[in-house]
Computed example of a mutant assay.
Amino acid sequence: LNDLEQLLSYETVYENGTRTYTSVSVHGLNEETVWSKNASSNSRHKREVYGTDTRFTITDKQYSTKYPFSTSVKISTGCSGVLITPKHVLTAAHCIHDGKDYLDGVQKLRVGILKEKSRRGKGGKGRGGREKGKRRKGDKTIEEAPEMDDNGGKKDRKGKGKTRKSRSRRSVESGKPSFKWTKVKQTQVPKGWFKGVADGLAADYDYAVLELKKAPKVKFMDLGIIPSVKELPAGRIHFSGFDDDRPGNLVYRFCSVSDESNDLLYQYCDAKPGSSGSGVYIRLKEPGKKKWKRKIIGVFSGHQWVDVNGNGEQQDYNVAVRITPLKYAQICYWVHGDAGECRVA
Rank of each mutant, 00 (worst) to 15 (best):
D245K: 12
S70V: 04
Q304V: 08
Y268P: 08
I237Q: 12
F242S: 09
N38I: 15
K185E: 13
G288L: 04
R157N: 13
V197E: 10
T33Y: 00
E144P: 12
V73A: 10
S9T: 10
G235E: 09
D60T: 06
L326Y: 00
A39S: 15
D150L: 05
D149Q: 12
T163Y: 00
K100N: 13
S23D: 09
V344Q: 03
G17V: 14
L4T: 13
G128P: 11
A208I: 10
D206F: 01
D263Q: 15
G241V: 05
V197H: 06
A202C: 04
P273C: 02
K66H: 06
P146A: 07
K217H: 11
T57F: 00
G123T: 09
S166H: 09
G17Q: 12
S41Y: 01
T324Y: 00
Q304M: 12
R283P: 05
S178R: 14
G288M: 05
W193E: 08
V218S: 04
F194C: 04
D307M: 07
N30C: 02
H88N: 15
S261D: 15
N16Y: 06
Y333A: 03
S228P: 10
V24L: 01
K162V: 07
L232V: 09
D307L: 05
S40D: 09
A145S: 15
C79I: 02
K100F: 00
K125R: 13
R130D: 03
D204L: 02
D101M: 05
D270V: 10
W35N: 11
L212H: 05
V13S: 13
N262I: 09
